[in-house]
Design a protein around this nucleic acid. Structure first.
Lengths: 335, 335
DNA sequence: ATGAAAGCGCTAACAT
DNA sequence: ATGTTAGCGCTTTCAT
């Protein structure tokens, strides 16, 4: 493997000149530059990136912590992150953490180990044991955000979005609206639940704990939760699921019970994943600008890394959109 | 940020001893080791990974080129890769290439730049401009493989799998079997097509080009292709899709045409993604051990990196399984 | 515009 | 068992 010294010898210049010809071509005379470039070409020289990173104390790598890449919403966010990162000259190290806190901490050490310049966490967990002497902390929290993260956040107004969906259902005449929730401890679940409760309250509908079912964002959990909702003596006429996967699971269960959607029961989702318009019936859901979450997160993180003043409590609240399809309809007449 | 010298001073030893106490604790006296560890603890010292990598000429990073992480099959492969890699002490740099050859070449330079020790390519494209002096080439090609890749391969016997699926359909009495193909130039598409054709031939069914529809593995392309298949004056009684996403698209279109599945027309997929059992009806498909593709690829790649003798033409052919659900059924009676 | 040289933090060969 | 030291390849002062 050719190194910079060999190129310098070939071109008859010093290593410093080779370095300059490559990094800041304008401060090198055109003629010298040409000779250097020729030598680079001829020798097949490639700068040793580990040496560059070591020397310059910058890796131009970004660590992204994602609970699971096997999720159509996150994979869109990731695409957005990669696009924005490469536009700014950064590579991304994608880490599938399966929501494992230890794995997240381990990956976060890549930053304190200088293997990466910053970190984007897509889950509500703070992976640094402490600041480890790094300040400002090169981290951005996006999608599912921590209430007290010591770093900028990019997120949806989940409360309002859930409220809008619930109001849509109420407007259709539903009064018994079941909810299939996400994981217990997630702030996202808490906010969506709050929005749902507020909408009910505003409409004067008394809350009913029996209508709340736990889920974990998986297809199977939606299926199971729907089963328990349908068993109730006075079953809901609508089910609001905290994501589309669970809505798909719920739809399957509802159909197996011989009920029609939306005539007998409405089902709503959240996220607007590509599959949502291919189900039977297509799912009414909340669309989020997934790629833009990635763009924003990268923009903020790179600003931090490059030393721009970014306040710790910066927030970007992304817009959402209610997408009405045919899985929701008027509440059935009272029997 | 503390460095090794400061730790050495704190512990009253040389930097070499600190390095040894951390890397090979057994060759350092217990007492010294204790003092070093205490100093490390007290100072919050973390080895500078870029320095370690630079010095040791090894990064313990693996580059993974994936056409799109937004794919339930690939994301399982990725999970398998990450699991196997971390078990062996490697990190993975996941690169979403969107099947862009230039992006793949760019990422491949991370290996020649020594930012990574090896590369796993999940697509049938060879991303190195030449061997760039590296030999044996630290690359493994998995999932969709190149016929003439100069490196080990991990793949399915796509031809046989497609043949098995087609035979399943033929056994159900189908004679007009449409096929929704993947992208034109993919070897995977070619092999699955071949298996389909062979099964027809064996059954004495003459080939009919009109039954072949192009697709691109997306939901939308399955929908479109099914539309064109249904328009034919003598439409197929079964449609075999080269992946489950296209099958889901096709199912939607078939239902919109007022046809019942499988009574009027059967639809089969490939991959057995999680959604496949949640569609209405659930999809008959070919299951692949996605995570195992990742495990195998990592095992081979690490062997190459660590200098074990691995033949260039090594192949691992992974098993598949026909999963019969209810989207396929007996061919309708002739009218 | 160019060169000489220091040094980033670490590992490993060599010396003790 | 421990210390001394060279040097990995590069960038970047500081001279010229």
């Amino acid at each position: 493997m050719t190194n910079i010294r060999e190129v310098a010898e070939m071109a008859g210049v010093s290593v410093a000149t080779v370095s300059r010809a490559l990094k800041s071509p304008d401060i090198v005379s055109p003629e010298t530059r040409k000779r250097v470039l020729a030598a680079v070409e001829r020798s097949g020289y490639r700068p040793n990136l580990t040496a560059v990173q070591f020397r310059s104390q910058r890796t131009r790598n970004l660590v992204v912590l994602v609970p699971t890449v096997a999720n159509t919403f996150f994979s869109r966010v990731i695409s957005g992150i990669q696009e924005a990162a490469s536009r700014r000259g950064y590579s991304v190290l994608l880490c599938n953490t399966l929501a494992n806190e230890q794995a997240e901490r381990d990956y976060a050490t890549m930053v304190s180990n200088r293997q990466a310049d910053g970190i984007i966490q897509l889950r509500a967990f703070y992976p640094f044991d402490d600041h480890q002497g790094i300040d400002p902390l090169p981290m951005v929290n996006a999608c599912e955000v921590l209430d007290d993260a010591p770093c900028p956040r990019v997120h949806l107004d989940n409360r309002t979005a859930a409220r809008v969906m619930t109001e849509h259902l109420i407007q259709l005449g539903h009064r018994r609206i079941g909810m299939i929730k996400g994981p217990r401890l997630s702030p996202l679940t808490r906010d969506r639940l709050r929005g749902y409760q507020e909408a009910l309250e505003d409409a004067g509908i008394p809350p009913d704990g029996d209508l709340l079912c736990p889920g974990d964002f998986s297809l199977a959990s939606g299926y199971r939760a729907a089963a328990s909702l349908l068993e109730q003596r006075c079953r809901p006429t609508a089910i609001f699921c905290e994501n589309d996967e669970m809505a798909i699971g719920a739809i399957k269960r509802v159909k197996e019970a011989g009920l029609r959607i939306p005539e007998d029961i409405s089902v709503a989702g959240f996220d607007d994943i590509p599959f949502a318009r291919y189900t039977d019936p297509p799912i009414t859901t909340i669309a989020q600008p997934a790629e833009d979450f990635g763009h924003e997160a990268v923009a903020l993180l790179v600003d931090i890394i490059e030393g721009h003043e970014i306040k710790r409590d910066t927030r970007r609240v992304m817009p959402f959109e209610l997408v009405v399809r045919s899985s929701t309809g008027p509440a059935p007449k009272q029997e």
